[in-house]
Design a protein around this nucleic acid. Structure first.
Lengths: 184, 184
DNA sequence: GTCTATAATTGGATAGAC
DNA sequence: GTCTATCCAATTATAGAC
């Protein structure tokens, strides 16, 4: 949540915005809220970032530790990917929900699509071989996104309380089937 | 989008609200917008429904034609369920997106959870047999929700343009694996 | 039941002094 | 670069006449 940007005021605004947007979402966070947490005046928020939407797009970037999967064996990638999703921290969850709930305008939709491509589609597609790799990667991304959707957006409490390993095994097996399809 | 309710004005408000919330979502739809489309004054909207949120919760009910799957053979239910998702009309899509994007408060979260349970979890769980039925049903619901999430919230254009049958076959097979697991 | 008028708040964004 | 002061537009919701 920190960022080594030069002007301390701008950095304070950025940090406060990232926290509040992640905690409360776009609509419920006002420019005044951000200024208050940063300890500066509201006008400076606009001065430094142009608009509230601009600041949102600058701070809300989905940062999944998906690079850690780059060198893992492909035959267990399904389980490892699901395991990563289940152990992702609160901040990523906040960004994901904020992006999802703020979607509906062109700029916001574009950002959500980019996040989806970069975090799910691209890392999965790069490991796929065989026929229909493009569509399989996108179905795999849908499957992964569906888990986060159920856990975080819907808040399926049974799933949230479920045994970690059994979710990883069962859902990971389905993801694995898209990564390395088996016959019949 | 019609509803046989008695007072014509109240019915006009309800219809206008259902249309606008479905088209533009909660935040972008004002009480004035609804009143304008209904051809009445804005104060009547509150008079009849108490509040904007109340009206939203009254109109935005996810109505998937999921009962049509009740008597289908269980061994092809996966494909049929996915097929149903892909052929669902614009109005259901609007309700789904409106509920998803409006979530984040207690009342809205509850409604989204109810919609998820009634439309996905319950119909799937009722057909499941064998061990871990509860968790399998919820993973199945996550999988289905993930497809709608990818298509509608993210707007994955490659998936939207993909061959209908091949999506049904591939993604349906994964859903089927949760409904009727096969060995090893 | 319906409308006019307005309350009461809040929002993002700007001008201009320092 | 920062703050004071404010603008201006928009919101939901209410009071009260008809």
């Amino acid at each position: 949540m920190t960022r080594s940007e030069r002007p301390p005021t701008k950095d304070a605004i950025w940090t406060a915005a990232a926290e509040l947007f992640g905690e409360q979402g776009y609509a419920s966070t006002s420019v005044r809220d951000i200024a208050a947490r940063a300890g500066i005046d509201a006008s400076l928020v606009i001065r430094h970032f142009g608009s509230k939407e601009n600041l949102f797009l600058d701070t809300m970037k989905l940062d999944l530790a998906v690079n850690a999967l780059r060198d893992l064996p492909v035959d267990t990638l399904g389980e490892r990917f699901i395991d990563l999703m289940l152990t992702t921290d609160e901040q990523v969850r906040g960004v994901y929900l904020a992006l999802l709930r703020a979607s509906g305008t062109d700029a916001m939709d574009t950002r959500l699509r980019e996040a989806h491509e970069e975090s799910f589609v691209a890392p999965l597609r790069s490991r796929l071989t065989g026929p229909d790799a493009e569509i399989r990667a996108r179905l795999a991304a849908a499957l992964v996104g569906g888990l986060l959707y159920s856990l975080w957006a819907v808040g399926d409490e049974t799933l949230l309380a479920a045994d970690h390993d059994s979710v990883v095994r069962r859902y990971g097996a389905l993801l694995q089937e898209l990564i390395t399809p088996r016959e019949g």
